[in-house]
Design a protein around this nucleic acid. Structure first.
Length: 597
RNA sequence: GGAGCUGUGGUGUAGUGGUUUAACACACCGGCCUGUCAAGCCGGAGAUCGCGGGUUCGAGUCCCGUCAGCUCCGCCA
């Protein structure tokens, strides 16, 4: 830096610094050349301060400033002065002062950036990711990363204070059945064998409980080779936690405390405890999802009983076939057009709903093509059930329960967004508890674990494992924030016999179980404490705290939907030598081969 | 695997139900300018419209395919 040493950060200069000689280092945010005087907004991660370069103060600095361009890296030595009366800038934290340059050095030049380095830009994400180092210069991105850092720090501080040890677990692990697709890593020293990157440190953290660690946590990268979403990346970060000698309430209470601490320390939000709890069943019934957004109403209402006896065949037959008919009240949407309804119908079709029935509620009664199929009493009952009043629009789906829940649950969110019903800046936590332990997978033709195969069933439901697996309730819990699943965990099975029953219930033969999880079963024979834990999606938490819509905005170097990293252009092909060493031969399908050439 | 949206100078957009020098703003370059802070004024350069094919006398515009980004379904214990 040509002998200069930075004394202050740009964004932190205040009136109290007036008169001080300072040396600043930073990037040229903007240059305003008035011919006789040049203003340079100098930016570092703390913010911006105005540097004044005048030929009256330093002819040499002025000459250099004339050649300076956006994003040049400068060192500026000068004096902090109060801005002349009337030239203060209230939009700037440093707006009361300016630095009058005595000396200016260009530490580096810069090409013109491909997009402006400022907040609120709507640049193609392609371009942002390709030039991520420029994207990350934008103040809002830096604030997001700073928040992420503070959040991690708060979590570490809290857990440390509560006796948790942060212990690292392997990244090169064994591939296990169940769950997401694994990322595999070939082993050079063991030809034909592969490691898997961890989907989570699940097994290790339970083993740590067997090892008597008592309280463990880790802020840890996890990998799942599945398709991406706004809140899903192939590698993501979990706050992974496990505790011994605890039951559900112990975990939930401590984790609530942690959330309260986290939100207060990072974004100054006071959360109130305890967080509400909903059973899985109630969540599905009222919101059509196991991760309900409770920031607004418009809950699903069941009218299956009315539908069963009504003359509308679509409703009646769905109800008779063991399905459901449910509706939501889109309040004040009586002005929706034919076209609006077509759009909504297309929307629910995404969730395999075959149609969307509607009733306009007017002062004169209901208006709807299906109204004629209902008696006056039935209409009255429906209006009461949905708490309808004139001007409302009632929307119904009749189908299998899963389809009704998925489509109306999504429609509820969609309408709320469209109608602006979702209050910004509020944080509604809710625990969802009493998940089913198992669910039947049609494709696999067997029961699969809803959570994971180490989740403990409720004690009283253990006998059902053999007789009626679908009815077994799990000692599992999810933490949901504003409709986003931010965490989930369970009390684990700590007895070998129960674990074996569980494996049997998911159709894992004893021999397979021994092959895949033998180490675990063996460990469980050596004195395993009752234990349980939870893992939080750290990216999702930070996303919500930062008010972002995608976790990409709180990850320094995220991947695109096709799992590519546009800056380094990963993934890439590797050399034949590398493959040979790993004993791997690539066999591409014909269409991929065509695309390469 | 599937559905939808987007793709036009560096960036963001406009672009007639088909034909001219493809328009605008910002950025960029040059000039002027001593108090601006989205500085201002004057001038200039810069896009064959993601890519490929088709229809047509003629395609940024229509059709088909493909690629990329995004949102969603499936998938994600």
């Amino acid at each position: 830096m040509q002998g200069l040493k930075r004394t202050h950060y740009c964004g932190l200069l205040r009136r109290s610094h007036v008169g001080e000689k300072v040396v600043l280092m930073g990037w040229v945010h903007r240059r305003r050349d008035h011919g006789g005087v040049i203003f340079i907004d100098l930016r570092d991660r703390t913010g911006i301060v105005q540097v004044v370069v005048s030929p009256d103060r330093s002819g040499e600095a002025f000459a250099k400033a004339e050649a300076v361009r956006a994003e040049y890296v400068l060192a500026v030595a000068g004096r902090v002065e109060a801005r002349p009366e009337g030239t203060e800038n209230r939009n700037l934290a440093t707006g009361e002062v300016e630095v009058v340059a005595g000396e200016l050095r260009v530490l580096n030049q810069a090409k013109t950036p491909p997009f402006p380095i400022e907040d609120g830009v709507e640049v193609d994400e392609n371009v942002r990711l390709r030039y991520r180092y420029l994207d990350l210069r934008r103040p809002e991105m830096q604030q997001a990363l700073a928040l992420r850092h503070r959040a991690a720090k708060a979590v570490r501080d809290f857990l440390d204070r509560h006796g948790f040890w942060e212990i690292e677990t392997p990244m090169l692990t064994r591939s296990t059945p169940e769950g997401a697709r694994d990322f595999l890593v070939p082993s050079r020293l063991n030809p034909g064998c592969f490691y898997a990157l961890p989907q989570s440190p699940q097994l290790y953290k339970q083993i740590l409980m067997v090892a008597g660690i008592d309280r463990y946590f880790q802020i840890v990268r996890c990998f799942r080779d599945e398709d991406l979403r706004a809140d899903r990346q192939p590698e993501f970060t979990q706050i992974d936690i496990e505790m011994s000698f605890v039951d559900v309430d112990d975990v939930l209470e401590l984790m609530e405390e942690m959330m309260v601490y986290l939100f207060r320390e990072t974004i100054g939000i006071a959360l109130s405890r305890p967080f509400p709890r909903l059973s899985y069943r109630e969540a599905m019934e009222r919101f059509g999802t196991d991760k309900p957004d409770t920031r607004f109403g418009m809950e699903l209402k069941d009218v299956t009983d009315i539908a069963l006896k009504c003359g509308f065949k679509v409703f009646a037959s769905a109800a008779e076939a063991g399905g459901q008919v449910k509706g939501i009240n889109a309040r004040g949407c009586g002005n929706f057009s034919r076209k609006d309804l077509e759009e909504l119908t297309a929307f629910v079709a995404n969730y395999r709903a075959r149609g969307l029935a509607y009733l306009y509620v007017t002062p004169e009664g209901v208006k709807s093509p299906i109204a004629k199929f209902f008696t006056a009493e039935e209409i009255k009952a429906i209006l009461e059930r949905l708490e309808a009043s004139p001007g409302d629009l009632l929307l119904f789906v009749a189908d299998k329960p899963e389809v009704v829940a998925a489509s109306l649950g999504a429609l509820r969110l969609h309408l709320a967004q469209r109608l602006g019903l979702i209050p910004e800046g509020t944080f509604n936590f809710v625990w969802v508890v009493d998940f089913p332990l198992l669910t039947y997978d049609e494709e696999e033709g067997r029961f699969v674990a809803v959570h994971h195969p180490f989740t403990s069933p409720r004690e009283e439901d253990i006998p059902l494992l053999r007789t009626d697996p679908g009815r077994v309730r799990a000692r599992a819990y999810d933490l949901v924030l504003n409709g986003v699943e931010v965490g989930g965990g369970s009390i684990r099975i700590h007895r070998r016999d129960v674990q074996e029953e569980m494996f049997a219930a998911i159709g894992l033969k004893p021999q397979e179980a021994r092959e895949k999880f033998g180490f675990m079963l063996e460990a469980f024979e050596y004195g395993t404490p009752p234990h349980g834990g939870i893992a939080f999606g750290f990216d999702r938490l930070v996303m919500l705290m930062a008010g972002k819509k995608t976790i990409r905005d709180v990850i320094a170097f995220p991947k695109t939907q096709s799992a590519a990293e546009l800056m380094t252009r990963a993934p890439s092909e590797v050399s034949p030598d590398q493959l040979r060493e790993l004993h791997i031969r690539v066999h591409l399908p014909p269409e991929a081969r065509a695309a390469r050439s």
